Each structure stands twice: as C-alpha cells, then as structure tokens.
Amino acid sequence: MPFLKLRDNAELFYQDWGNPKGEIVTFSHGWPLSSDNWESQMIFLVEKGYRVIAHDRRGHGRSTQNWTDHNMEIYVDDLKELFEHLNIKDATMVGHSHGGGEVTRFLGKHGTSRVKKAILVGAVPPLMLKTPSNPEGLDKSVFDSFREAMRKDRAQFFLDVPTGPFFNFNRSGVTKSEGQIQNWWRQGMRTSFKAAYDSVKDFSETDFTNDLKSINIPVLVLHGDDDQVVPIGAAGLKSAKLLPQGKLKIYPGGSHAIHNINVDEMNKDILDFLKN
C-alpha cells in the first residue's frame, strides 16, 4: 500500500488507481471516514480512462494516528505535499463534507496552479456554526452533542449517525442499507478517537468564506435539499453564490451522502463536469 512520509514523519496513505497518463481526479473524504468512501466514483472514473487519487487524512483510516495537528491548515499542507510527490497537474479536486472544506481551503491557501476544476459535495463551506453574521448555521450545542456522544460511547454513536441522518435512513420510504451503515461504522472506528473528536471543531468552526471568494476556477456545488448533517441553506446555496465561477445542482430529497445513495446520478454529473 502506498504511503507518503510527510515533513513531520507522519505517513499519509493514498490510493492511486487507473490510467497513469489519464486526466487526474482527486478525492477528499468526509468526517470521520476514509478514502474508501469514494470507491463508487473512483471505479467508475477509472473505467472511463481517468487516473483517480484519494488519501486518508492524517489520523484517519490507514494514515498515522498522531495525537495533535487535526486542523485544516495541517490537512491542506499534507495534501500539498501529496500533490508535489505525485506531480499532480491539471487536476479536478472533489471533496465531500469536511473534505469539501479541505478542497476549498487548499485552493484558497495554495492556489490553483495544479488544479483546473473542483466539485464540492454536501460540503461544509462557508461556515457551519451559527454566528451573528451566519444565522443559518447550526448552534454550537449540536457539535457539543457530537463530542459528548463520542465520549459516552463512540461505537454506538458511529452506528447511530449512519443509521439515521447521514444517509436519511430515518426518513419514511427510504430503503435502509445495512451494508452502508456497517461500512460507515468500519471507516469511522478505524479513525483515531482524537482525530475524530478534534475534527468536529475543525469542520464546524472553520470559516471558508474568503477561500470561496478567491477560487478562480469552475466549481460545481452538489447538495441534497434534505441534507440533515450539513443543511443546504447554510452551505451549498451560500457557497455557490460566493464562488466566482460556481454552479449549483440540487438533489431533490437528497441526503448528506448523495455520492453513496444517488450513485449513478452523481457519477454522471461528475463525468459531465469533467468533459465540459
């Protein structure tokens, strides 16, 4: 399995599939998951001739479970090292949820010299936390309850999230997939407690407003209008307006996990955006 030794000797696990000379698409996963969460999109694009690259953020999945440094500045610097190591150029970056924040801050901080397009899927920007200037956000008590539940019984909490709001399996008429639930749990429990715990603050309190405004490439924003984890009103709708070249597509009834549930539609939307 490929690992990159980073500047502080932490090791970053990554998957590099497909045509070595193909157009590159990178994937950044959501909380508290790993690169495995993108497998439906990755295999689809490989079969279309693309090269796909996805990593496990530090503390997540198979990457080093360090005690500190679980914040967006470190995450995007790690990703920059991976881009340099693999000589990634003219890529399209795709990020879900927390990973959408990673893509946004990466482009805001490190620029677009290696990236030509981006896709944000149920992504956390511009800001999840409710503040006087962001009344559509979620109250801090919501995120405090995440941390409290993790301290009480992380294993059960990591079953409750996918069983309910993540995939919208708590909605009437939705067919529940036990496989999706168990796969989410598997990925979440493989992530260190410390990384998962600290990342709650990172994805909820990081303000990406200025990053969005500075991104000078086409960005496709994909968001479910029944996203119970990252409400579209505080996220996708605002991001699309802040992005200079933002384009929004709303998935009616879509959950937070539209890339896992609306697989065929999502794959087509990604491919169309790559080609046009």
Rank of each mutant, 00 (worst) to 15 (best):
Lys5Gly: 06
Asp8Phe: 11
Leu12Val: 05
Tyr14Arg: 04
Glu23Ser: 14
Ser28His: 15
His29Trp: 02
Gly30Gln: 00
Glu39Asn: 10
Gln41Met: 10
Ile43Ala: 07
Glu47Ile: 10
Gly49Asn: 08
Ile53Asp: 00
Ala54Pro: 00
Arg57Ser: 07
His60Pro: 02
Ser63Phe: 08
Ser63Tyr: 06
Thr68Ile: 11
His70Ser: 02
Val76Asp: 00
Asp77Ile: 01
Leu79Asp: 06
Phe83Ile: 13
Phe83Met: 10
Glu84Met: 12
Val94Met: 11
Pro125Thr: 12
Pro126Arg: 03
Leu127Thr: 06
Leu129Asn: 04
Thr131Ser: 10
Thr131Ile: 07
Leu138Glu: 12
Asp139Leu: 11
Asp144Leu: 14
Asp144Tyr: 13
Ala149Asp: 12
Asp153Trp: 07
Asp153Arg: 14
Gln156Thr: 15
Gln156Asn: 14
Phe158Thr: 01
Ser172Phe: 13
Lys176Ala: 07
Ile181Thr: 02
Thr191Val: 07
Ala196Val: 03
Asp198Ile: 08
Asp202Asn: 15
Asp207Ile: 14
Phe208Ile: 10
Pro218Val: 11
Leu220Lys: 05
Val221Met: 02
Gly224Gln: 04
Asp226Ile: 09
Val230Cys: 15
Ala234Gln: 09
Ala234Tyr: 11
Lys238His: 06
Lys249Gly: 01
Tyr251Val: 04
Tyr251Pro: 06
Gly253Pro: 04
Asn260Thr: 12
Asn267Gln: 11
Leu271Glu: 10
Asp272Phe: 03
Phe273Pro: 00
